[in-house]
Design a protein around this nucleic acid. Structure first.
Lengths: 223, 223
DNA sequence: GCATTAAAATGATTACGACTCATTTATAAT
DNA sequence: ATTATAAATGAGTCGTAATCATTTTAATGC
C-alpha cells in the first residue's frame, strides 16, 4: 500500500501547511508558536520538523504555496485571446483584490525573502507569478498593441509596485477594493501604446524635448 | 552639571542606535544579537533596555531615524523654486539611489511596521517622508503644471511603488543606479500634465521650452 | 498470523537568546 | 563628607525553537 502511505504523508504535510498559514496569518511570524501549529495540524511538535527543517523553511513553504495559488487564480481570471489591454485590466483587478484580501500573507512575504543577513532572494513561485504579467505584455508587443521601447521589467515594476502600494494604502485606510486605482493605472499604460506617441504631431514632441532639458538642468545643478 | 549629564545620555542613546543600525544591517533582525549591539555600543546588555523597551522598539527607532535622515536628504536634494517636473526628477533620483545604497535597512522597514498580528501601522517618519512628494505634487497642481484630476495618493503610490520595485530589481541583479528607470517614470508622469493631454496634438509648446531654457541660462551664468 | 525491519511519530529535554532585577557604581544635592 | 537619586551592570530567569532517544506504526517475508 505504497500509494496510501504516500497520500497519508502528503495529507499530513498539507495539514501542517494549512495550520501554519492560519497561525502565521493570525499571529504574525514572531507571534506564531510552533506548538500551536503542531496542535492545529494534530501532530506532535517534533513531527513538524520531519517535514520542514525549521520555522523559517515552514514560512517559506507557506508563502510559496500562497503565490502558487495566486498564479493559478490569475491565469484563471484572464480571458484568453482577449485584447491585451483588457487582460492587463483583469490582471490588475485580480492582483489588487488578492493583495487586499490576503494582506497578512502578503506582508509576511517580505519576511520569507529575508534569510539572515543576505540580500533578499526571490522565491521561485513569485518569479512564476510575475511571468503572468510578462507574458501578457510580451504578447502586446508582438501584436504591436504596445511599443517595445521600454524594458518589460521596468513596466512590470511600475505595475506591481503601484498596485502593492495602493493595496497598502487601501488596507491602512480600511477602504476596500477601489476601481479607480485600476482605471488610473490603465490610463498610465496608454503611454505604452505606440499610437499615443506616434501620431501626436507632425514632427516634434514637446515632452521629449522637455525631458532632455530637465536632464540637462539636473546635471547642471549637481556638479 | 545637568547639561553634560543630558548630553552623556544622548550620546549613549546615539551609540546604541548606531550599533543597532550596524548589527541589524549586517545580520538582519533575527540574526542580530542584543549582546552584540550592547558590546558594540560599549554598554552592558541591561543598559540597552533602559533606553529601549525591547528589541522591536529598538528596531523601530533605527528605522525611524533612517527615514528621518532620508527626509532631510531629500529636501536637500531638491532645488527650491525649480520646475515641478525637475523637482520630481531630483526626488526620484535621490530616492532610487538611497533605496539601493541602504537596501538592507529598507527591507527591515517592513519588519518594523508589523507589530504582532496587527495590520501594518505607518511609522511617523515614513509618513513625514512621503509628504515631500505630496508637497511637490501639490505645488505642481497649484501652478497648473499638473492637473488635479487624479488623487495625489494614487500618483504617490505609483511613484514610490515603482521606485521601490525597481530598486529591488536592480539590487537583485547586482546592477547599480540606472538612470533609465527615472527617465521612464518621468515619461509616465507626463500623463499628469494638462498640456500633454489637451493641446499637445499641435506639437510644441514654445513657452514652456523657453521658460526651461531661460532657467538654464540663468544657472549657467552664475557659477 | 508472527517475526523482523524500516519508517514515522512522539514529547521530554536541550540550547539559546531576549529580557529582568538585585546589586553596584556614578552623579547630584545639602 | 553624607545622603539621596539616578544610571549601569551582568548573572540569572524564562520562553520557545529545535533536537533526539524512545515508542509506535506500517511494510515485508515466511
Amino acid at each position: 500500500m505504497a500509494d496510501t502511505q504516500r497520500q497519508r504523508l502528503e495529507a499530513r504535510e498539507e495539514a501542517i501547511l494549512a495550520a501554519a498559514t492560519a497561525v502565521f496569518g493570525k499571529s504574525g511570524v514572531d507571534g506564531a508558536r510552533m506548538a500551536e501549529i503542531a496542535r492545529r495540524a494534530d501532530v506532535a511538535e517534533g513531527t513538524v520538523y520531519l517535514y520542514y527543517k525549521n520555522k523559517h523553511e515552514l514560512l517559506e513553504a507557506v508563502v510559496d504555496r500562497f503565490w502558487r495559488e495566486l498564479t493559478k487564480g490569475a491565469i484563471a481570471a484572464i480571458s484568453e485571446g482577449a485584447a491585451v489591454s483588457q487582460q492587463l485590466h483583469e490582471l490588475a483587478s485580480y492582483h489588487l483584490q488578492s493583495l487586499i484580501d490576503d494582506f497578512k500573507i502578503v506582508e509576511i512575504t517580505s519576511r520569507a525573502r529575508m534569510r539572515h543577513g543576505e540580500p533578499g532572494r526571490q522565491l521561485p513561485q513569485i518569479r512564476e507569478y510575475v511571468r503572468v504579467f510578462d507574458a501578457i505584455m510580451q504578447r502586446g508587443i508582438d501584436l504591436r498593441e504596445f511599443s517595445a521601447d521600454t524594458a518589460i521589467w521596468q513596466i512590470r515594476d511600475v505595475f506591481y509596485g503601484a498596485l502593492e502600494h495602493s493595496a497598502r494604502t487601501l488596507v491602512l485606510r480600511k477602504q476596500g477594493f477601489d476601481p479607480s486605482v485600476i482605471d488610473h493605472l490603465m490610463r498610465l499604460f496608454e503611454q505604452y501604446r505606440p499610437s499615443s506617441r506616434a501620431d501626436n504631431a507632425s514632427g516634434l514632441d514637446a515632452s521629449e524635448i522637455m525631458q532632455a532639458l530637465s536632464r540637462i538642468e539636473t546635471k547642471l545643478s549637481q556638479p
